[in-house]
Design a protein around this nucleic acid. Structure first.
Length: 276
DNA sequence: ACGAGGTCCTGCGAGC
DNA sequence: TGCTCGCAGGACCTCG
């Protein structure tokens, strides 16, 4: 579920509560979300550590610790963060809580995930660098130009929508924003990536950057599960042009929006009237 | 080298 | 009202 704007919103929301704080104690309730680390090592590795920084990379929340290690959380479909004020005890395992970080401020930052498809890992600097290298460029980085995007996508025989969602090519774009960006750019999602002209690629680039920026401003898209770091819904769902609008008129040409699962078995919404 | 499909999980809404 | 079924915003793996 959470794509770049949603993960960015979560990271921004929890940052003021975490940055500069010391983790007194970490408690893990759902060990099956851990990757390549066991519960005791996870809890021991976090206890006593000070949080140096909280950021985002692609669809991951990155919590950097004072020993250089990173707590990485990838919420996938249903993961979300929350902050509990001092003195308010949590519901712990009853409430799909995966882990809790009890801070020296008295606050508790927790991560919950209903489906538990998300991933949590604690890795050192070197392994994080390797992991980071394998992910494509950040679309909101100033160096992400249309030329850079074209270079990153080049040679693709796959549908452009699939290419946009490939994290090795571009970071952070998922199903909702791939659908939206292609509508904005007026490009048919099934088009072969390698056959898209430079001028069209520039439109797609502009649309990707624009839709992600606007969604961050709106604090993300809540269809069902997504919650911001403060527990509320996002607002961008009210501004979606195609996603979830099957059968409704296109906002540009009034033709009916079509839903198909032909591309990678994921829901693709597009307008047959003005996307070519 | 690529695409298709299964897998991890739980909840929800549609339809009977 | 209550059940079953299909589907969900992600990403990894195997198979052909």
């Amino acid at each position: 579920m959470p794509e770049l704007p949603e993960v960015e919103t979560m990271a921004r929301d929890i940052r003021p509560h975490l940055a500069g704080r010391t983790i007194r104690k970490a408690h893990l309730y759902k060990p099956d979300v851990l990757r390549k680390i066991k519960r005791p090592a996870f809890e021991r590795g976090l206890a006593g550590r000070r949080v140096r920084a909280v950021g985002r990379r692609a669809k991951h929340v990155v919590i950097e610790l004072d020993d250089g290690r990173r707590l990485i959380v990838q919420p996938r479909m249903t993961g979300s963060f929350g902050v509990r004020a001092r003195g308010r005890e949590g519901r712990g395992r009853e409430d799909y809580i995966v882990f809790e970080l009890h801070l020296d401020s008295g606050e508790t930052v927790y991560y919950r995930d209903v489906r538990r498809l998300g991933a949590v890992f604690l890795i050192d600097e070197k392994r994080w660098a390797d992991y980071d290298c394998a992910i494509g460029p950040e679309p909101l980085d100033p160096s992400f130009t249309a030329a850079r995007m074209t270079e990153s996508l080049k040679g693709g025989k796959a549908a452009i929508k699939k290419a946009l969602m490939d994290q090795r090519r571009i970071a952070g774009v998922g199903n909702i924003y791939a659908n939206e960006a292609l509508w904005m750019a007026g490009i048919d999602p099934s088009r072969e990536t390698g056959r898209i002209k430079a001028e069209e690629m520039a439109r797609i680039h502009g649309a990707v950057v624009d839709v992600l920026r606007k969604s961050i401003e709106g604090r993300g898209t809540t269809i069902r599960d997504y919650r911001t770091g403060t527990g509320g819904p996002g607002s961008f769902q009210g501004r979606l042009a195609v996603y979830g609008r099957e059968g409704e008129p296109c906002l540009r040409c009034r033709r009916k929006i079509v839903l198909t699962h032909a591309i990678d078995a994921r829901a693709t919404y597009f307008c047959p009237g003005c996307q070519h």
